[in-house]
Design a protein around this nucleic acid. Structure first.
Lengths: 210, 210
DNA sequence: TAACTTTGACCGACCGTTCAATCAAAGAGC
DNA sequence: GCTCTTTGATTGAACGGTCGGTCAAAGTTA
């Protein structure tokens, strides 16, 4: 260890990495991973092409770092205290949090949607050996599965107060598909969601599925 | 015009073009437009790389031809007689037709979803000067707008028999978003839709939004 | 033979990646 | 404070490889 590699220099290095990752995320989400060149990223980050490789091993490594950071940020906003069942109030909060994340982490979601549409890429990139993301000590995959289970239980619990032809599985599919469809439209064709449609969709979802 | 370019030879030429387009569509939808190479398309079509350029000007021209063909096929299945208002029975038929198309033209929809997520690509490719698609003499854009108008009118007409807090615009957004979300999940992660979930989603949509 | 189809070696362009050279800044010796 | 040394961040030309696209030549058909 040289005297230069102190905590202060590590911090500066992290700041530079953040700068590059921000520029890359913007390009990846708008232009696409394959279509984005290293030169383009470097130009937007205000650095030279070669310097990128001092901070990231490769273009793929850069992508992995971006996804890792975003997942950690996003899953960190959810309160992991929900070991017990979901109450209607918590369900409503969940919806509002999800929509807030669409707004705040817009570029990440665009990138993620794109990546999930490439066969195999998602599984390879997010395999636990390649990218061991964990939220409060819980691996990402387990965290996601818990969330889905929680939602499934919530819709199952609504069966008592619903009619006889209520199907919790179908109901949950309708719910999740509505959110997915909204995300797609909002992220890639925002001109339709100017004004108050964003909020109206939240209220409509809560009213219908809470 | 040479004597070889008779109707019979034109037909053979069209068959060859179809062969190439089929192979290209499969690759574009699974691997992506940028990631698919001409060599790969040629290999899957059973021809040489150079021959592709006897039938299509460029890779982009090939993509445009595929989209053109698919749009014509798909919009042709819809009965364009709906100048008047949509009845509930017609609305139900519409849903069933849309879902049938998801099944039958699966690869095209995958490709289309991908393309719509590239900023500017969709507008450039489908501009009327570059790709003058028309369905029964009506330009594609006009045809789509008519469909949306028809749906909007249908949801507006339901206001009379609904409660006071019924919002036709929001209701239509919920409806279209649910379909979009289903399409995304079905097209890119079909393992979740094995079994009868496909049919169950159709019935649930009809029951809720008819 | 003449007209047309088909091939695949080849081209220039551009990609991600490397690396020798540069340079500003911090340390060391005085 | 001044000079010299050391450091590692930074640059951009260059590299190997691959891409979309071209074309002379071989093959095919009539």
């Amino acid at each position: 260890m040289s005297p230069r590699s102190s905590a202060q220099f590590e911090e500066m290095r992290e700041e530079k990495k953040t700068l590059i990752m921000d520029a890359a995320l913007e390009q990846f989400s708008n232009v696409g991973f394959h279509a984005t060149t290293i030169t383009r990223i470097a130009r937007h980050a205000g650095i030279s092409k070669g310097l990128m490789y001092n901070y990231f091993k490769s273009k793929e490594d850069l992508l992995a770092a971006i996804l890792n950071r975003s997942f950690t940020e996003i899953y960190g906003t959810f309160n992991p205290d929900h070991d017990s069942k979901l109450t209607p109030a918590e369900f409503e909060l969940f919806i509002r949090q999800v929509f807030s994340l669409f707004r705040e982490k817009r570029q990440f979601w665009k990138l993620l949607l794109r990546i999930m549409m490439q066969q195999g890429v998602y599984e390879n990139l997010l395999s636990e050996e390649k990218m061991p993301i964990s939220v409060s000590g819980t691996p990402l995959r387990e965290f996601s599965e818990n969330m889905i289970m929680l939602l499934a239980e919530y819709f199952a619990s609504k069966q008592e107060s619903a009619g006889t032809d209520y199907n919790p599985t179908t109901e949950m599919l309708m719910f999740t598909n509505t959110i997915k469809g909204f995300a797609m439209t909002y992220l890639f064709a925002d001109e339709h969601y100017q004004g108050d449609y964003f909020e109206k969709m939240i209220e409509a979802l809560i009213k219908r599925y809470k």
